[in-house]
C-alpha cells in the first residue's frame, strides 16, 4: 500500500488538544495542502508526520509501514521550515549537502548533487556563497533544495512562502507546483492562505479547532463546502441565514429559496445559504423571477479588473462581484433584486 495514512491521530499538550482524531489517507505522488487558521493544528499534524512531535494517540503509516515511533532523523523525509532554518555557519552548498554528509556520501558526489539541485531550483552557481548573501527568495530555494537532497519519500513544507512578499509568493506557488509535478514527489504543504492552497493542491485538507473539516480537490471544496466554516474560510462567501423549508430549500424572510442539493436537515431547523460573490446576479428592483431577494446597494468598489458591490439583504451584508463589462448600472442607495441561482446555493446547517 503506497502513500501516507494518518490513522486516528490525536495530540494533546497538557490540557490543550492540538489534534482530535485525525484520520486521513493520501495516495502517493499528490500535492496536499493542510489549510486552516492559525492554531487549528495543521502545523502540529505536519510535525507529527515529520517525527518532530509524538502523537498522543493513533498511528502514522508510510507505504504501509508504521513510522509512529521512528525518530525524525531515521524517517528520511524532507522538510522546509517556516523560518527556513538554514544553517548560518555553512555555505549554500554545505547547507544543501548537509544530509549527504551525515550519510557519509563522498565529496565529489556531494558536489555534483548540489549543482543538480541548485539547477533544479533555478539557482545555479551560488554553492560557495554564504547564506547571508542571498535574498529571501533565494534562501527559499536553497531550503527547498536542501530538503530534496536525500530524495525523500515525502516532501513537507511548513508555511514555506509566508516570509516572501506577495508577488514573489505567487510566482513561487506556481514554481513549487511545477517542481512537484516534475519530480512526482508526495508533498504536504501547511498554509493559512487559501489562494496558495487553491493554486498548488491536488487535495486540500481544511482544518479548524484541531479537527479536519473537509477533504477534497480545491474546486470541489470551493463549490461545495460542507459547513459554514469551510464556506467562509475558502474564498469569500455570503451566508444568508434562514429556516429549512423542504428537501432542498430554505425560507429567508418568508421567501422560498432553492438550493443546489438535498441537505437532509429537519423541517423548520435553522440553516444558511452559502453563495459565492461571483454567482450573485443583480437585477433592477421589481423584475420578477425565481430565487430572488430584495436588497439595497451600500457601496460600490470599482477595482478596474472587477467590480465589488456590497448589498444589504435580509439583514445581512452581502457581496457581489462582477466584471466591469457585465456591470449593472447601480448606484449607492438603489433598491435591486438579487438572483441567487439554485445551482450556486449550498444549504448549510448553522
Amino acid at each position: 500500500m503506497s502513500g501516507l495514512r494518518i490513522d486516528h491521530v490525536g495530540k494533546t499538550f497538557g490540557m490543550f488538544e492540538a489534534l482530535k482524531d485525525i484520520d486521513l489517507d493520501f495516495p502517493a505522488g499528490r500535492f496536499i495542502c493542510l489549510l486552516g487558521p492559525s492554531g487549528c493544528g495543521k502545523t502540529t499534524l505536519l510535525r507529527a508526520i515529520a517525527g518532530l512531535e509524538m502523537p498522543s494517540t493513533g498511528r502514522i503509516l508510510l507505504d504501509g509501514t508504521d513510522i509512529t515511533s521512528v525518530p525524525a532523523h531515521r524517517r528520511g523525509l524532507g522538510m522546509v521550515f517556516q523560518s527556513l532554518a538554514l544553517f548560518p555557519h555553512l555555505s549554500v552548498g554545505e547547507n544543501i549537502a548537509y544530509g549527504l554528509r551525515i550519510r557519509g556520501v563522498d565529496l565529489a558526489t556531494r558536489r555534483r548533487k548540489v549543482e543538480e539541485l541548485l539547477a533544479l531550483v533555478h539557482l545555479p552557481g551560488v554553492a560557495d556563497r554564504s547564506i547571508s548573501q542571498l535574498s529571501g527568495g533565494q534562501r527559499q530555494r536553497v531550503a527547498i533544495a536542501r530538503a530534496l537532497a536525500l530524495d525523500p519519500k515525502l516532501f513537507l513544507l511548513d508555511e514555506p512562502l509566508s516570509a516572501l512578499d506577495a508577488k514573489l509568493r505567487e510566482a513561487m506557488q506556481v514554481e513549487l507546483k511545477l517542481l512537484q509535478q516534475r519530480l512526482g514527489i508526495s508533498t504536504i504543504v501547511v498554509t493559512h492562505d487559501q489562494r496558495e492552497a487553491l493554486t498548488m493542491a491536488d487535495i486540500v485538507v481544511v482544518m479548524d479547532n484541531a479537527r479536519v473539516q473537509q477533504v477534497g480537490p480545491p474546486l470541489e471544496i470551493y463549490r461545495n463546502p460542507v459547513n459554514a466554516f469551510v464556506a467562509d474560510f475558502i474564498g469569500t462567501s455570503n451566508l444568508l441565514p434562514g429556516a429549512v423549508d423542504g428537501q432542498d430549500s430554505l425560507s429567508i424572510d418568508g421567501i422560498r429559496m432553492a438550493g443546489a442539493r438535498p441537505h437532509g436537515l429537519a423541517q423548520g431547523s435553522k440553516a444558511a445559504i452559502s453563495i459565492r460573490p461571483e454567482e450573485v446576479v443583480i437585477h433592477p428592483a421589481g423584475e420578477l423571477g425565481p430565487n430572488r431577494l430584495p436588497a439595497e446597494v451600500i457601496f460600490v468598489r470599482d477595482l478596474g479588473a472587477s467590480v465589488e458591490i456590497m448589498l444589504a439583504c435580509a439583514g445581512q451584508e452581502l457581496l457581489a462581484v462582477t466584471s466591469p463589462r457585465e456591470r449593472s448600472d447601480v448606484q449607492v442607495g438603489d433598491r435591486v433584486a438579487l438572483e441567487l441561482p439554485p445551482a450556486a446555493c449550498v444549504v448549510l446547517p448553522s
Binding site: L86, F87, I102, R146, L150
Partner: peptide, 17 residues
C-alpha cells in the same frame, strides 16, 4: 531558532550529532 536543530534532525543527524 528551534527549527535549526530540527532541520538537522530531519536531514538525518541524531540529536548528539
Amino acid at each position: 531558532d528551534p527549527e535549526i536543530p530540527e532541520a538537522s534532525r530531519t536531514l538525518g543527524a541524531s540529536p548528539l550529532r
